[in-house]
């Protein structure tokens, strides 16, 4: 009896909530769902005279250039591996920094947060000048410093082995501030009474973090992780394009799908071909998230994305 009532309540349409969601859904429709007709572009041979719908079907022709290219595996590997490292380290570091900030007085927090956010406003083009200023073999700050210490100075721009590290550092430099703020805000929403009670019970800092803060942040961590996994086949184009400064010798370590396709199509721009790769990136990301979401759902339904 009680059970059916609950079910009924859940399945009764809540019109108030529905109305609240309408403006958002309208924008979603206009900017995301209506343009979906573009998903046919990869399968068309573009002809401006006939328009997108009138153009001839070309089957999978637009996909061939990428899947037959000799570098497809290298760039796919680079994309996934680097992004996986970025996701893990960004999450771990941001959570740690957020916990650290949580322990400090609010005045200090203000200064730290502002400093951590500075890099977010530096575009990668400008960033590439800074990295160059630090690493260039001629006048770079780091090579000069190493020289003073009597070390042999490598030419960073011709040795791929350093680049996974350089790219990861740069990525964290730019994104940790942003993600830290998310976790910090999550901690802000926590019940302080719980904390005080724990502290009275004699729990030390680490125990409080482990038993109170972490469980509280977990849903957000999982959410961020899931969203990031969805984009794992995409990459921060600006970073991968500008930081290696065209040094082709580094491409074995720095080339990702986005930059590779950009270079392939630079001479002969072709909208069908670039859309084909975009579709491939979306589909793979989508499948990955569906699978991860399913796993998450099994362990805790509330953590799942949908």
């Amino acid at each position: 009896m009680k059970n059916t009532k609950l079910v009924k309540k859940r399945y009764k349409m809540n019109w108030g909530l529905f109305i609240l969601s309408l403006p958002g859904l309208a924008f979603l429709l206009a900017y995301y769902y209506l343009p979906l007709f573009g998903l046919i572009i990869p399968f068309k041979k573009m002809d401006v005279e006939k328009g997108i719908f009138g153009s001839e079907w070309s089957g999978l022709d637009n996909f061939k250039f990428f899947f037959n290219s000799p570098d497809m595996w290298t760039v796919t590997r680079n994309t996934i591996c680097l992004n996986a490292v970025f996701i893990c380290l960004t999450l771990v570091l941001s959570v740690i920094v957020a916990l650290g900030l949580f322990e400090l007085s609010s005045r200090k927090v203000k200064i730290f947060q502002t400093s951590l956010f500075v890099p977010y406003f530096i575009s990668w083009v400008v960033g590439s000048y800074v990295i160059y200023a630090l690493l260039s073999p001629d006048m770079g700050v780091i090579p000069n410093f190493m020289e003073k210490l009597g070390m042999t100075v490598p030419n960073f721009y011709s040795e791929p082995k350093y680049w996974p590290f350089i790219l990861t550092t740069s990525y964290l430099w730019k994104h940790v501030g942003y993600n830290t703020l998310i976790f910090y805000a999550t901690l802000m929403g926590m019940d302080t009474a719980q904390h005080e009670a724990a502290s009275i019970d004699g729990a030390n800092k680490l125990q409080r973090i482990r038993y109170i803060c972490m469980p509280h942040m977990m849903p957000t961590i999982v959410l961020m992780g899931l969203l990031m996994i969805g984009k794992i086949f995409y990459s921060d184009f600006g970073m991968f394009w500008f930081l290696p400064r065209n040094s082709g010798i580094l491409y074995s370590a720095t080339d990702v799908i986005d930059t590779y396709v950009f270079r392939m199509l630079r001479v002969m721009g072709n909208i069908g071909m670039s859309s084909a790769v975009g579709l491939y990136q979306s589909v793979v990301g989508f499948i990955l998230v569906l699978v991860t979401n399913l796993i998450v759902k099994k362990s805790n339904k509330d953590y799942a994305l949908f």
Partner: peptide, 11 residues
């Protein structure tokens, strides 16, 4: 909609 979009041209 976060993952799939029609691309730039339709937008």
């Amino acid at each position: 909609s976060m993952l799939f979009n029609g691309g730039l041209v339709p937008t």
